[in-house]
Amino acid sequence: MGDAIGEHFQPSLKELSELEKLTRAYGKFSRDAVGLGHVLGGGLVFLSAYLLGHHVHLGVFGRLLLGAGPFAWILGKEWLRGHYYQFSGRVQQPKRVWEDVLLAMLTGVTESISLTTTGFVVHGLLQDFSWRLALSSLVYAALLLAMPFMVWRYLRAPYEFVVGVALLALAALLLSGSPLAGTPRAAVVLGFLQVSNVVALVMVLVGFVEHMEFLKLRRKMRALKEAA
């Protein structure tokens, strides 16, 4: 520790303030930031949107693989958090007052959208029933109905919410073979794909900036260790 507050062996106010900044920056990777996790999420959103938008033929295995994307992404980002970004022990970012309210709102909005969309799917199915359509609608509805739970449990930060919901919605379309295709609602899907591409680009950029911040932070922490 450097020079004095009152005595020469005390940490200075500047050093304490640096320590505060460092703790906050490191703690951010417990919730708000996930660097490469956002880059991967953005990449996956882009790939899924591209495959859907270009009607690329996917076999059952390919569909399952891409449909499992959101779950693999959630596992991956949590692993990155615990083992890579918080490499020197966990530091939990303090909870802000508005976070619980925001999460409740996001979960509520997701729930109403997923219930409404499921209602449309069931209505469409009842009007023109076929077993093939029933199966794909079931998969589609299952993923949609899982969305609110996933948001509440794993997508607590705003960026994670955006990527996670986009990925889950794309997975639902990929797995079900898009039950909306060929209907007037296909235009809605097309609009969603365009929004997804923008989301993908933003997430890759955000993740890249966060990762650069992390590299800087890691250098600082390594220097601290060497100084000790």
């Binding site: 490191y26 020197s88 530091v91």
Partner: peptide
């Protein structure tokens, strides 16, 4: 500055 901090940090 945090909710919880591990000893290692």
């Amino acid at each position: 500055q945090a909710e919880e901090v591990e000893f290692r940090f």
